[in-house]
Nucleic acid binder design. Sequence first.
DNA 1: AGATATCGTATTGTATACGATTATCGCAGA
DNA 2: TCTGCGATAATCGTATACAATACGATATCT
Lengths: 236, 236
Amino acid sequence: MPTEPRPHGLRAQSVYKALRRAIIEQALRPGMKLPEDSIGEQLGVSRTLVREAFGRLAVEGLVELKPNRGASVAYPTLEEARDVFDVRRSLERLVAETLAGRLTPAQITELEHHVRQEEAAHGQDGPESIRLSGDFHIRLAEMTGNVLLLRYIQELSSRCSLVLAIYGRPHSSECAVSEHRQLIEALKRGDAKQAAELMDHHLQAVVTRALLTPRAERDIRDLLAPYALSEGLTPP
Amino acid sequence: MPTEPRPHGLRAQSVYKALRRAIIEQALRPGMKLPEDSIGEQLGVSRTLVREAFGRLAVEGLVELKPNRGASVAYPTLEEARDVFDVRRSLERLVAETLAGRLTPAQITELEHHVRQEEAAHGQDGPESIRLSGDFHIRLAEMTGNVLLLRYIQELSSRCSLVLAIYGRPHSSECAVSEHRQLIEALKRGDAKQAAELMDHHLQAVVTRALLTPRAERDIRDLLAPYALSEGLTPP
DNA sequence: AGATATCGTATTGTATACGATTATCGCAGA
DNA sequence: TCTGCGATAATCGTATACAATACGATATCT
């Protein structure tokens, strides 16, 4: 059962999905302005639908809406980034606990297949590699059967993409495949505690690998950004 | 810092908040149809704004949107109810862990004050008593400083209101004050593990107290609902 | 020259209009 | 009486129109 389709009409749904993908795949970079007119023109729909999509995306934290000043791709602060990862760790832990010892053979097969794909795509890091390692977590969430949990994980995953687009190092493949393997083993064994711990450390590792170490020059921008903004300057 | 105001304009925001409150306080009961025209008329705005509000409320799970068939107040199934409580327990656990040993004296004072209020309102169960015991959890979430966590807890809290409106026994005061007291004590001691456990059991208790025991006749409807729906019938 | 006021333009906020889809009701026929 | 069908009404999906606001440029004053 897929996550419920949110926007009202079918066409509105399309706009929503298009924008969502564009943001996640960084065609629209964080902070970029999103004028209703041009977007609608580009997509061949009226402002009405664009606005509707903006609303959804705003709730999901992918765009920011400032009254009378329009929408822009969200530019999460480092604090918000931390918040996202904290919440995500908590929920992914729930995923692991829920799944431990409850995976069907078919599901195990699928997960192992997925990991093999990740391994194959390890060297090349087009958008493919990134997407795959994200997908692994989405799949796990799906398997819990908890639709709400799935929705939250998806949302958090999207936001993580944003965060990495801003603060991440360029070619970090985000998830270590070996950690995924270990996790699957723990889930198979039904060791809930171990699985939860592995998941926790795994996500912690993702943060340090992708985010914390190499932010030398970025850091300057990020630390400076608040001051720039408070002076009315607009950092690129 | 309040949770970011979501809808586009100021007026749209008002509509959103009005509907949200109406649903949470059960002026609009679960399953009730929400025609855009009449709602807009009632609130003195056009369908445009009503639709915008619906969009937000749908993402938060308070209304359901069926294409070409309009909006209605969400009527969560028992499964979805379980999902909500599972996720909530996980996140409230995070709240407890985050807060343990980190509460300022002022915050402790505020929480204790809050609990005293709950005690005072214990006998009478107007909307006041219900709201208070929900507020306690919101306050805790606020104190974490994690804005995203706060938003999620608020959302989950709202959905819990819906669930209780459907499946809850009429006059359950939802939260036991004594459990709130114990939790505060653990937080003061900085005993994260204990606090998390207390929170977990507390929420578990809420479920059993308010939800599981007295569902005799309701049960029938709930068990039958899937079959009814799968045949295209719409239970009232 | 510098600061301030004013106007113009671009963009957003909201309402309305119109075609498309779905629900409701009455009626004919079994 | 019950079922099937068509017309009408109600409601939704989307586009457009108009009003309100914000930003930038020019002009004016000191």
